[in-house]
Amino acid sequence: MSESSVRLNVFKTYKLYVGGKFPRSESGRVYEVSDSKGKWLANAPLSSRKDARDAVVAARKAFGGWAAATAYNRGQILYRIAEMLEGRREQFVREVGDAEGLSKSKAAAVVDAAIDRWVWYAGWTDKIGQIAGGANPVAGPFFNLSTPEPTGVVTVVAPQDSSFLGLVSVIAPVIATGNTVVVIASEKAPLPALSLGEVLATSDLPGGVVNILSGKAAEMGPHLASHQDVNAIDLAGADPALAKELEIAAADNLKRVLRPQPVDDWSADPGTSRMTAFLETKTVWHPTGSLGAGGSSY
């Protein structure tokens, strides 16, 4: 084949995913993203604090509807995400391989684990309430029921190294239970996260439930951590100094804080703790009483 007949491939412009749309950073800034060997892959938006603010607005707007959706419906949508991902498996294998310097087979294993993780949480949506809640046998004529409820808008600093499986592992449990999320993708490997936005947009997930920002956690983090309309923060991808700074800022409105925890293997059984970290327990009391005045104990 001659030079002239080689088809020039079409680059993708990577964009943020906020409120169900794909905006560029309002700042107009981008930064270079390279693969593990330093080869340029793409330019990613360098989100600003205003992008973060907009993402919080979108997440708050989406919260009421998402929290009120039936658990079955949320499960269906999370499963749909897995279906959509399966269909774009090859793309993600390539992107994850580039991002994390993995062989094709290792990258494929990571993507498969991420798809399976959506399936895992899809199944949890209508079970976590039974595991984490229940009736309490109070010593009185009352029906007393504890129910887990989503905390609200959760900010997540995504893991830095595991750009895709790690990302899925931290956002899926947050939204499975009805929270909405603003996630700061891995700073050096944001492309799989930004591509995930395209999957989410075609998975019946209401806009604003997941908002994906690329850029510097150290730049956006403090604004999100101190934001009075954010209810919780997951510091998974923050280094110790940043984590401490953000935890201090989070105290301004007593956000729920999930501190960074060492994760050796993101493919291990995740348990339920990432869900329960962003659940509130609401306990409702209601009198039962006797069926009639005749049954009174007096």
Binding site: N136, P137, V138, G140, F142, N144, S146, T281, T283, W285
Partner: peptide, 9 residues
């Protein structure tokens, strides 16, 4: 109303 079996917070 309060009870030791009933979560509070």
């Amino acid at each position: 109303k309060f009870d030791p079996t009933s979560p509070f917070g």
